[in-house]
Amino acid sequence: MVAFSNGYLVDNLTEALKIRSEFEVTPYAGGTDLMVEAKDDAVYLFLNKIPELRRIYSDDEYIRIGAACTYTEIFENTLTPQILKDSIDYLAAPAIRNMGTAGGNICNASPKADTALIFYVADAKLRICSASGERILPIEDFYVGRGKTVLQRDELLVEILVPKFGLEHYYYKKVGARQALAISRVAFAGLFSTENGIITRFAMAFGSVADTILRFRDLEALFVGKTMTEAKSLRDDLIAKYDQAIVPIRGRVSADYRKSVCMNLLEDFLNQNGI
């Protein structure tokens, strides 16, 4: 461990968790969000030299992405699913992608987070560790609101567990104010799979429209297990239900604009999948 005037640099997870449990520290991975409004009195726990947080590997079920992996590292890894690569391709600009991390994107808890949207739609899980143990929870349970998560003050996000299967057939669109270095105004990700004419996977996530990323599992359930014909007959009903469920907040753009884009993309997602 090296102690700096503004924090601690450690090279293994055990030590990091020990410091996390003993001191009031701000976890610092890439710093691309933290440095925008750096606080003079902050004490940081620098995470970028911890091997356990820098790995990308897979097991039977999951691609496991270390929380301190940079966007560039994730983008360049052959295990990374294409939908995640697409989101990174539209994220900020190369300099930020070289420093910023997926863990930071999640823990910053912005509904605009580009990669968090993909983790949402993909049913990713988060592996969270503390000195006294670990827990794994679905990403949707991690968020409490804008900028708020259930991460305890002695915990660190260690890995993101992305399901290996069912991500091939996807739809992704980010709408920003420009082509690069853009905060998303609306982001949409959808997954769709069928087996023997039966819909096995139907998931949609909406970013930048509310305090957290939105998913409506009860509405998705209307399609799962249905035949294509059944889904087609339910299409108008589903659209009407989403139209009711999505209530965007106004921010840099109006709620009306966000709503129009969400509904247009949702319909296009259905169209593309023959519904």
């Binding site: 104010a177 420009r178 082509q179 690069a180 840099r252």
Partner: peptide
């Protein structure tokens, strides 16, 4: 209300 670079949008070379 938008006196910062995240809110005052100018074109980049990608645009």
């Amino acid at each position: 209300r938008n006196n910062s670079f995240s809110d005052y949008i100018i074109p980049t070379s990608m645009d």
